[in-house]
């Protein structure tokens, strides 16, 4: 086993521990936790036996295991972008609602609506 494989296994093992702890403490739902553990499990197997990805790739009609990993990574990154975009969009909308509501709450609506018009030449009011 190469030093890189050892480092990878330590990192993946740490992530497994983190996910398990998160599920146990209720910070992560069980379905999401299960998906993460499956992904990490596949990563651990691929780290211990890199040839296993090639075998799986061939079954799927892809010649090399590295190609399979690349395709999966591309899909995962795209999905990640989409999820982040949708969350960002929602947060922006929520921020807009808050800012708009605050603007109305802080409006000096007790001011008379028929305040005198400003001087036409200067465009400035005397207030």
């Amino acid at each position: 086993m190469s030093p890189f494989q050892i480092v990878l296994l330590v990192v993946l093992g740490g992530m497994v521990a983190f996910i398990v702890q998160a599920v146990v403490r209720g910070r992560l739902g069980r379905p999401a936790g299960a998906i993460w553990l499956i992904v990490l499990g596949v990563g651990i197997i691929a780290s211990i036996d890199p040839n296993s990805t090639t075998a799986l790739a061939r079954r799927l009609g892809i010649s090399r295991g590295t190609d399979l990993i690349l395709y999966v990574l591309v899909l995962a990154v795209l999905q990640g972008f989409l999820i982040f975009y949708l969350r960002l969009r929602r947060v922006r909308r929520e921020l807009t609602i808050l800012v708009r509501r605050l603007a109305i709450l802080e409006a000096p609506s007790n001011r008379p609506s028929d305040a005198p018009a400003p001087d036409a030449a200067t465009g400035r009011s005397e207030a």
Binding site: V99, L102, A115, G123
Partner: peptide
């Protein structure tokens, strides 16, 4: 604030 009869303010730019 000086010129509008009803000045409102967005604390953050929202477009």
């Amino acid at each position: 604030r000086r010129s509008a009869s009803h000045p409102l303010r967005h604390l953050v730019n929202r477009g």
